[in-house]
C-alpha cells in the first residue's frame, strides 16, 4: 500500500471521527406506532430546525415494534396506540421511572379503491364479514343494504382486503371495533395488534407495513379496501367510508367529535403518567361507539423519566407544535396535569 492508500485510510478515519469534533449534540431516538407518524414528522421537521442542541428521530414501525424496542432497551422513547399491557408495564417499570400517557388523538378510517364511488357506508358487522371472507364481492346484498343508491354501481368484483403485516395499534383499534360489532369476529378472530386474518387463507388478503404501506396498497390495487389512520387518508385524498356505531347514524370523524370523546374517556379513566394504562382503549372505544364516529383512537408516549431532553421536546410541542389535519389535540387540562 503506497502513500495514497494510507491517505485514503486517513481520510476515512477523519470522516468517521468528525461528528465527535463538530457535533457534540445527540439524537433523541424514538420508534413505534405509525398512527401518529405524520404528526410526529411535522413536529420533528420544525423542531429539528429550531436550533435545539439535539435532534429528534422517529422510526415508524408499528406499536408492537416500539414496545419491542423499549423492551430491548434500544430507544429513548416510543409511541404506541394501545398502552403497554399491565404485565409489560410492571416488568419495565422495574428498570426505572417509566411514564406513559396518551398524547395525540386520531381516528382509524376505512378507505377503499372503487373508481366512481365517492360515498360508501359500512358498519362493523359488514366489515367483519368482509375480513372473514364470506362477503366476497362488492355487490354483496349486505353491502347494498347499507348503500341502496349504489345498486348497479358496485361491481361484481372480489374484494381485496388490505391489512397491516406488522404488529400494529391501528390493527388493535380496528379489530377491537370489529369485536365490539360482531360476536362471530370476537369468537373466531378476536382482537390484537397482530391477528390471524381469515381472508389471507382465502388469498384475498394483502399485508402492508405501517399505515403508509396499507395506504399504498389500497391506492395501487383496484377493488381493495383497508384501514388507516385518518391523516393518511386526508393527506392522500383517499375516500373515507362513513361508519356507524351504536346509534346507527353514519358519520366520518371530526376534530370536535374526537376531542369530546377523549375528554369524557379521560375523565372516566382518571389516570396519570405514573399509572398503568392497560385497558384504556376499551373505555375510549366504548365511549366513541355509543356517541358518534366509532373508531376513535389515541397514541401513548412512553419513556423513562430522567432524560431532560424529552421534557424539553414536550414543552416545545405544547407551546409551538401545531396539530396537522387528521389528528386532534389531547384536552388542555390533561396536558397540564402531565407536564406538571
Amino acid at each position: 500500500m503506497g502513500w495514497r492508500g494510507w491517505l485514503t485510510v486517513l481520510v476515512a478515519l477523519a470522516y468517521l471521527v468528525h461528528p465527535y469534533l463538530i457535533a457534540p449534540s445527540g439524537v433523541l431516538v424514538g420508534s413505534g406506532a405509525t398512527f401518529p407518524q405524520a404528526q410526529l414528522e411535522a413536529w420533528m421537521s420544525s423542531f429539528n430546525n429550531a436550533g435545539f442542541p439535539f435532534k429528534v428521530e422517529y422510526v415508524g414501525k408499528g406499536s408492537g415494534g416500539g414496545q419491542s424496542d423499549l423492551s430491548a432497551g434500544v430507544v429513548d422513547f416510543i409511541c404506541t396506540d394501545p398502552p403497554l399491557s399491565s404485565e409489560l408495564w410492571a416488568r419495565l417499570k422495574e428498570r426505572g421511572d417509566l411514564v406513559e400517557f396518551p398524547f395525540i388523538l386520531g381516528a382509524v378510517v376505512v378507505t377503499y379503491n372503487l373508481p366512481g364511488v365517492d360515498r360508501l357506508r359500512l358498519n362493523g358487522s359488514v366489515l367483519a364479514g368482509m375480513y372473514m371472507g364470506y362477503i366476497r364481492y362488492w355487490d354483496d346484498e349486505r353491502i347494498l343494504a347499507l348503500n341502496p343508491g349504489l345498486r348497479g354501481v358496485l361491481p361484481h368484483r372480489e374484494i381485496l382486503l388490505v391489512h397491516r403485516s406488522d404488529s400494529s395499534g391501528t390493527t388493535f383499534l380496528f379489530t377491537s371495533f370489529l369485536s365490539l360489532s360482531s360476536e362471530e369476529w370476537r369468537r373466531s378472530v378476536g382482537r390484537g395488534k397482530l391477528v390471524r386474518w381469515p381472508v389471507d387463507e382465502l388469498g384475498r388478503g394483502l399485508g402492508g407495513q405501517g399505515n403508509l404501506g396499507v395506504s399504498q396498497l389500497v391506492m395501487e390495487n383496484q377493488f381493495s379496501l383497508g384501514y388507516v389512520e385518518w391523516s393518511f387518508a386526508l393527506q392522500l385524498n383517499m375516500p373515507i367510508a362513513e361508519l356507524s356505531g351504536k346509534s346507527g347514524d353514519f358519520t366520518v370523524p371530526t376534530v370536535e367529535g374526537l376531542v369530546e370523546v377523549a375528554d369524557s374517556a379521560l375523565r372516566i379513566l382518571d389516570r396519570g403518567p405514573e399509572d398503568d394504562w392497560d385497558g384504556d382503549v376499551d373505555v375510549l372505544l366504548e365511549t366513541a361507539f355509543s356517541s358518534g364516529y366509532p373508531l376513535v383512537g389515541w397514541s401513548h408516549l412512553v419513556f423513562y423519566r430522567g432524560d431532560g431532553r424529552i421534557l424539553q421536546w414536550l414543552s416545545w410541542i405544547r407551546e409551538e407544535g401545531t396539530t396537522v389535519p387528521g389528528y386532534a389535540p389531547i384536552p388542555d387540562w390533561f396536558w397540564e396535569e402531565v407536564l406538571e
Binding site: L16, N48, E57, Q209, L212, Q216, L236
Partner: peptide, 25 residues
C-alpha cells in the same frame, strides 16, 4: 432524518431509505 453522528449512534442509509420510501403512498 439523521445522518452519521458517530459510531455508537443510529444513522440512516440510502439503501434503507429507498426500501422504506418505496412503500410510501
Amino acid at each position: 432524518e439523521i445522518g452519521y453522528l458517530g459510531l455508537g449512534r443510529p444513522t440512516s442509509s440510502v439503501q434503507l431509505l429507498i426500501y422504506r420510501f418505496a412503500a410510501s403512498p
